[in-house]
Design a protein around this nucleic acid. Structure first.
Length: 262
DNA sequence: CGTCCTGTTATCGG
DNA sequence: GCCGATAACAGGAC
């Protein structure tokens, strides 16, 4: 379930369970997400210690003794630590076994996702052309990126990983709902005051969602996310939520709260 | 059986 | 070059 908040909560999970542990061996159930030959991956990762973590956008990096393990969760990926081999999660694709006991599973229901080993995290971010992380970016930088020259739809701009990294379909809908902005207007038509509102809302929502995810709590009832599916109604005005197609994705919005004209 | 889906990428067209 | 639309990737849920 991976947009920025889910990946950040995965990072917390790893910090709590897997830090400073040494990988004894790896079991590969399905190598579809693995971007290198199985044998090479196993050989390189064996005996490496997990010394730290970093997240950028939807990408998670495990810093190892001599290189970095990168994980991307696609649309249905997850990660889980477990102590007993009988507790291996369903759809686990790659299992790391620790020297001290315990396991870590990279899980994915589908096969979208990526597991790889890389030398430099900074170079990877550059090579992937990722923008600044949505949770870290400064207001100044944010306004520089979503500037009056951008002809993109606001929803597309928020989801563009090369602009701002970490926001996907669900959270872009939430940000626009809470700022009462119609998803299909051009960034260039939104004034600075409104763009500052978008920035503040983005930070607030991400912070809240990370906390909720870590504590395994649902998001508040007045979030659009809680009403986003099947014939949902707006938690503010009770209008029926509408669906709109933008950049190949389906977004949801309240036609009354998020008017085109502003 | 058909439709839907939290992500990314390649390709085409305006 | 910018930007949107589309298809493709996969497979489980409904």
């Amino acid at each position: 379930m991976p947009e920025l908040p889910e990946v950040e909560s995965n990072k917390t999970h790893l910090e709590e369970t897997s830090k400073n542990k040494t990988i004894k061996n790896v079991e590969i159930r399905d190598d579809y997400v693995l971007k290198m030959p199985k044998g090479e991956f196993k050989k390189r990762i064996k005996d490496q210690k997990i010394i730290g973590f970093r997240r950028h956008g939807k990408w998670l990096f495990l810093k190892l003794s001599s290189e970095n393990l990168l994980l991307h969760f696609g649309m249905s990926g997850d990660i889980k630590y477990y102590g007993d081999p009988d507790d291996e999660p369903e759809y686990s694709k790659i299992n790391f076994k620790f020297e001290a006991g315990g396991y870590l599973s990279y899980i994915s229901v589908r096969k979208l996702g990526e597991v790889n080993l890389i030398d430099s995290i900074d170079e990877f971010i550059k090579k992937e052309d990722l923008g600044p992380d949505a949770f870290e970016v400064s207001q100044e930088k944010f306004l520089e990126i979503l500037d009056e020259k951008s002809r993109s739809y606001i929803k597309s701009a928020l989801m563009d990983q090369s602009a701002i990294a970490g926001i996907g379909n669900i959270f872009s809908d939430e940000i626009l709902f809470q700022t009462k902005i119609y998803p299909k207007i051009r960034v260039s038509t939104i004034n600075k005051k409104e763009r500052v509102k978008i920035f503040n809302s983005m930070k607030k929502i991400l912070k809240f969602a990370i906390k909720a995810k870590i504590n395994d709590k649902p998001l508040p009832e007045d979030y659009l996310i809680s009403h986003r599916s099947k014939n949902g109604n707006c938690p503010i005005c009770n209008s029926e939520i509408e669906r709109i197609s933008i950049s190949g994705r389906h977004g949801y919005y309240c036609p009354k709260c998020q008017q085109k004209a502003d």
